[in-house]
Amino acid sequence: MSAGLEIRALRFAYPDGREALRGVDLAVAPGERVAVLGPNGAGKTTLVLHLNGILQPQAGEVVIGGLPVTKANLATIRQRVAIVFQDPDDQLFMPSVRDDVAFGPANAGLRGVALEERVQQALDGVGMGEHVDRAPHHLSFGQRRRVAVATVLAMEPELLVLDEPTSNLDPAARRELAEILDTLDLTQLVVTHDLPYALELCPRAVILDEGRIVADGPTHELLADEDLLARHRLELPRGFQVHTHPHRHGRVVHAHPHGTEPPHHD
């Protein structure tokens, strides 16, 4: 199951007066995978916290699968929307991996064998099935990130939101996480400033800057526009280029967008 997301004219200012969101409009279709790009301080995390009602809109509205995010709907919304936060140490707070993954579904009322099965299924889904009895603080950082994904998958959400999923990951853990996310059949919002990762995972991207969506389009087009990126403090890694060129897979010659570093030119 996957749910669509609709954000209309969303505004939010923190108590100190700082305006974090100044009218955000965004529609995401069910099953779509969209990258939300933006520099630090653009309002990305504030936007994320609106998606499951941790923050309530001061103006505008957020609708998940046809259901507006309001105080009355919070329980349903939080079951539908799964957020993977930046620091897995914030997300994994129980003494064992099993308890942590069970926390969400148990809050939703699941018990006994059904709960056990749900936990095992979620951990198997991120390749951490054999670590069910470990303590979170005994896992590597990449493993903790994957367990963090499992803790929210166990709630069988319809929209998965990842806040800076690649921060602090080494290249192997980064690739493993991408492979896992690629297998998940639900709507995904990947909030990041890791542009190559966005290109790899998401066909569509939006750029959030100063509390507004300033660009929306195919990820490879956005990333090929250097002026656009520069205006919003976004940069591809040095030497990394996005371009379309015809190439060959076995006997098939076709063209699709690529992110390549110079040594890989073919």
Partner: peptide
């Protein structure tokens, strides 16, 4: 932040 994560999972 831990409290936010807990609330997000229905606490």
């Amino acid at each position: 932040r831990v409290h936010l994560a807990m609330a997000s999972r229905g606490y």
